[in-house]
């Protein structure tokens, strides 16, 4: 089989999408557990890499690991029964050696989620428990990566992200893999249309009533209630909660103008492509801008 990659920059609605898909495919009545979501990041787990390739990732450099990942993705595609969804935060790169990190042969399609970077930075700072300025810098750094601890080890492989807009361009402009793009803001504004289009793109049997139910089960307050009750495996250990606000536009009160300016300067063209630029510029030209740094 081949894989539908659920690709996004972190904090862009990937887990929400997985919750909807899980509930859509869930056979038993009632909501599915948030700790058993389909599309887990199998491709980024050390244990999967080690067992699948027979190599010890913990004794390998990030470059050596990345070089082996195309082969890992092919092996995963072969092993996974349909429908095979795998969440990835990695940028769509070429591995050292030149092979595509996400090989065409292993790929059925890509669902790419994009979210206003001004909201991403607020959410990411909360998730990482880091100052917003530091996360702005991170999103503007082409060498940025998640799980990049050098003095220790986690259960995850290093995840190269590029900059926020570099990430988006890497997936959207690669020209090899079929991509379906969805904006987080559209998932919020019209979930039936947004998730319905994804269900169709992934070739799942269409059932409108079922989709409505799945969206209900995966509604933000329900996900948050489940997290409060039983915890969430994928939460950053230091963050107070994974499901934080689930809204669009909180950047207007959370960001300082110079932080908005730094992101706009770095990502203007891609922000414009997704309709995020106008609001940011109006903010900078209006009260926000006048308030100075």
């Amino acid at each position: 089989m081949s894989i539908f990659w659920l690709a996004s920059y972190p904090k862009s609605g990937n887990t929400w999408l997985r919750a909807v898909l899980t509930n859509y495919l869930h056979e038993a009545g009632g909501p599915a557990s948030i700790n058993a979501l389909i599309g887990a990041s199998a491709a980024s787990r050390r244990s999967v890499f080690d067992e699948c390739l027979g190599l010890p990732s913990s004794d390998m450099t990030p470059e050596e690991i990345l070089r082996c990942r195309p082969l890992l993705h092919e092996a995963l595609a072969e092993a996974m029964p349909p429908p095979a969804f795998v969440k990835v935060h990695e940028a769509c790169l070429r591995a050292p050696g030149g092979a595509a990190l996400f090989p065409k042969a292993a790929t059925a399609g890509v669902v790419y989620l994009v979210r206003n970077p001004l909201d991403v930075v607020v959410s990411y700072a909360h998730h990482q428990q880091r100052p917003i300025d530091r996360m702005v810098k991170f999103m503007n750094d082409s060498a940025a990566g998640a799980e990049k601890a050098v003095r220790g080890i986690s259960g995850w492989l290093p995840i190269p992200l590029l900059t926020w807009s570099g990430h988006a361009s890497s997936w959207l402009d690669q020209g090899e893999l079929p991509v379906h793009v969805t904006r987080y803001e559209d998932m919020l504004a019209n979930p039936r249309a947004a998730f319905g289009a994804i269900v169709r793109f992934a070739g799942l049997d269409w059932d409108a009533a079922r989709l409505g139910e799945a969206i209900g089960h995966a509604a933000f307050p329900r996900l948050r209630a489940q997290e409060e009750e039983s915890g969430f495996d994928e939460k950053q250990p230091t963050a107070p909660s994974f499901f934080r606000a689930g809204v669009a536009g909180s950047w207007r009160t959370a960001l300082r103008p110079r932080q908005v300016r730094a992101l706009v300067d770095a990502h203007g063209p891609v922000m414009e492509r997704f309709g995020y630029l106008q609001d940011a510029e109006a903010f900078l030209a209006g009260d926000g801008g006048a308030a100075g740094a």
Binding site: C52, L53, G54, L55, R67
Partner: peptide, 18 residues
Amino acid sequence: KRGHWESAPGAFLLNVDG
């Protein structure tokens, strides 16, 4: 035969690039 290794009864081959 998977990833970077092959096996058969009594024989095993591992290739570590570089």
